[in-house]
Write a protein that binds this DNA or RNA. Structure first.
Ligand SMILES: NC(=O)c1ccc[n+]([C@@H]2O[C@H](COP(=O)([O-])OP(=O)(O)OC[C@H]3O[C@@H](n4cnc5c(N)ncnc54)[C@H](O)[C@@H]3O)[C@@H](O)[C@H]2O)c1
Ligand SMILES: NC(=O)c1ccc[n+]([C@@H]2O[C@H](COP(=O)([O-])OP(=O)(O)OC[C@H]3O[C@@H](n4cnc5c(N)ncnc54)[C@H](O)[C@@H]3O)[C@@H](O)[C@H]2O)c1
Lengths: 212, 212
DNA sequence: TGGAGTTTGTGAAAGTAAGCATAAGGCTTC
DNA sequence: GAAGCCTTATGCTTACTTTCACAAACTCCA
């Protein structure tokens, strides 16, 4: 598959939006074809941006016509790596962890949380959804047998670095981090911070300064 | 307070990180002063970036010395608008909604969820944390009496636009949206989308293409 | 008091990303 | 089969963001 040498980070964050939008069209509309204009309108993105984003990966459209919904959806799934299912282990069966495990929406994006770890003895053995909570001493075996590459951190910030080190020792290659702290990881490990406080704080900022 | 005409979006998203880092230093370290180098190192941000970000709002440091932790923390709180508490109403007492309500960390960033709305008759009247779930017919009264400016959407995507319209009709000025859908709002209403699927998908993308 | 060593604040330069303009391809109608 | 109207793909321009480089200000110590 074609892929330009340099692709803007912002482009990569828009691809999932295109994918999800195509899924919706595919499920609820009869249109076989969609234009960059329509795709853009649904998402609040200029059509030129949609086309430029896609052009980094090849030519998916037909001039004068648009993009074939199913084809583009498949292509995007392949580009994003979500044409297969990625198993993941979640650490921290608290409020947020349980919400994440029970959310079905991630499956469509290729994520399947297969295992849950917690340090609380009262939680180990309990079920979260269909998954039995296990101790971190089982981590290495879980990661090895399922060939898990993704670890999800939903523990308090104070425990996040320790959990990170355990995950990496167990063989994980990437971390989705919900704890509000910076993780130190070896070269080659991918970290994605999902910092909800930043979201609300920037909203409050805009609210504060709106009329000045 | 000084504030440059144009401030990069990325700067605004880093300010909460600086603030939280200062809070941590203030709570756990004795240092009265911190340099842009140290602040940057803790957050993985270059020191020049730290200084430039702060410089949009004034001169907070002392050359040859650094930034006074408490002073900078106060200044940032004021800049971010989190030197007061913003009441908010959350709609959707499901898995995610309950996690958000029970999370204490938002208080430190100025957010207090004071009310919870759901349409499910089995949920109305129940408690989420200390808050009794109420029906959306009470929304307007809630927003008016508490002067709430922030609405939080934690309902399924299919209901998100309806809830948005209700919130705006009730007088809300900004929306923190967790539903994976674009909301259409009138001019002047601030929307912040917190799209977790984008996060995991971009992580999977990087994992997929890492060695190419 | 003065010089060496720090650290900030900020214009200028470099690096990224978005938007424009236009060429090229495609469909429809007569 | 040619005119007219679409829509995509992309080089170039414009806009935004980060990084660099250095003057200015402060501390410490001899
Ligand atoms: N709940 C939210 O809405 C929310 C919002 C933003 C950020 N966060 C962040 O997400 C993380 C989890 O939040 P939460 O509200 O679910 O917290 P929580 O206290 O409800 O759950 C944390 C869980 O982690 C477990 N845990 C603690 N240390 C552990 C360790 N070393 N190994 C394994 N498990 C361990 C605890 O037993 C508990 O079950 C926190 O870092 C929090 O700051 C949560
Ligand atoms: N749970 C997660 O981890 C997660 C992750 C990413 C995104 N999301 C998004 O967050 C939203 C909520 O997810 P969830 O897992 O909590 O779902 P959920 O089904 O557990 O909860 C949804 C709640 O909204 C209520 N509701 C539905 N329609 C309503 C209406 N019109 N007015 C008021 N209340 C209404 C339902 O009664 C239910 O209590 C969804 O849009 C989901 O896509 C959730």
């Amino acid at each position: 598959m074609k892929r330009s040498d340099y692709i803007p980070k912002a482009t990569i964050e828009r691809l999932p939006l295109y994918y999800r939008c195509l899924e919706k069209i595919s499920a609820y509309e009869e249109d076989e074809v969609v234009s960059s204009r329509e795709l853009g309108e649904r998402l609040g993105i200029p059509p030129t941006q949609v086309r430029k984003d896609l052009s980094y990966y090849g030519e998916f459209g037909r001039r004068g016509v648009g993009y074939h919904v199913e084809d583009l959806k498949k292509s995007l799934a392949k580009i994003l790596g979500i044409n297969k299912t990625w198993p993941a282990v979640l650490v921290g069966a608290g409020n947020l962890g349980r919400a994440l495990v029970n959310y079905e929406g991630f499956q469509k994006m290729g994520l399947q949380i297969t295992d849950v770890i917690d340090s609380d003895l009262d939680k180990i053995g309990n079920k979260v959804g269909d998954i039995t909570v296990r101790s971190s001493k089982d981590l290495e075996e879980i990661v090895k047998t399922r060939q898990i590459k993704i670890g999800i951190i939903a523990v308090p910030a104070s425990a996040a670095q320790d959990v990170t080190d355990l995950l990496i020792a167990a063989g994980i290659k990437s971390i989705w981090n919900f704890a509000p702290t910076r993780l130190v990881v070896p070269e080659g490990i991918i970290v994605r911070n999902e910092d909800l406080s930043v979201g609300i704080t920037s909203l409050i900022y805009h609210l504060t300064w709106k009329n000045e």
